[in-house]
């Protein structure tokens, strides 16, 4: 299922660009690098104002939370024919090891179950390879959480 092509390739590209354009994502410098099948990958470059522990220079855990939340949300849209507003219901992050100061963080996510009302996702954060993860995140999203469309022009 996850190797399948996106349900709507154009919508996934639009959602990827849209979600990283939200102000908080711009603040973090989040970039959408594209998707393999239905698995999107995002990147945040290391920056000194994103550090949590100034003694070590390790990025703040909140940066991981944001990239996991955003990448997972984009992964949900890879399964949709039309864009609907989704909202994170819950999110859990396991910090497997400290991020390396100075290195960019990548996050790849997949939606492994899209039910009628809930979407279930998992994500990994890493520097060089998803096989050597820094953090693991699982989340659930409410579908159709708000009648107000996220995209005003409906470009998808």
């Amino acid at each position: 299922m996850t190797d399948a092509a996106p349900a709507n390739e154009k919508l996934l590209a639009t959602a990827g660009a849209l979600f990283v354009s939200f102000p908080h994502c711009v603040t973090l410098g989040m970039q959408y690098l594209g998707s393999v099948g239905r698995k999107p990958t995002l990147k945040v470059d290391w920056r000194d104002d994103l550090v949590g522990n100034p003694a070590s220079g390790v990025l703040h855990g909140g940066v991981i939370t944001s990239i996991v939340d955003t990448t997972s949300a984009i992964a949900v849209t890879a399964h949709m024919d039309e864009l609907e507003t989704i909202a994170t219901l819950d999110l859990r992050i396991d910090y497997l090891k400290a991020a390396t100061p100075g290195k960019a963080i990548y996050c790849t996510a997949e939606c492994y179950r899209l039910a009628s009302q809930i979407a279930f996702t998992r994500a990994v954060c890493y520097h060089d390879s998803p096989d050597d993860p820094i953090a693991h995140g699982v989340a659930t999203f409410m579908r159709d959480s708000n009648p107000k469309p996220m995209l005003v022009e409906g470009a998808a």
């Binding site: 939200f22 102000p23 909140g62 944001s66 469309p149 996220m150 005003v152």
Partner: peptide, 26 residues
């Protein structure tokens, strides 16, 4: 404004809320 996620509502970014809470806990 820079902490917003969904701009049409507008709502604070979920990841930002997470970061704020995690920072508070620490």
């Amino acid at each position: 404004e820079r902490n917003v996620g969904n701009t049409t509502l507008p709502a604070l970014h979920g990841g930002l809320i997470g970061g704020f809470l995690e920072n508070a806990a620490l």
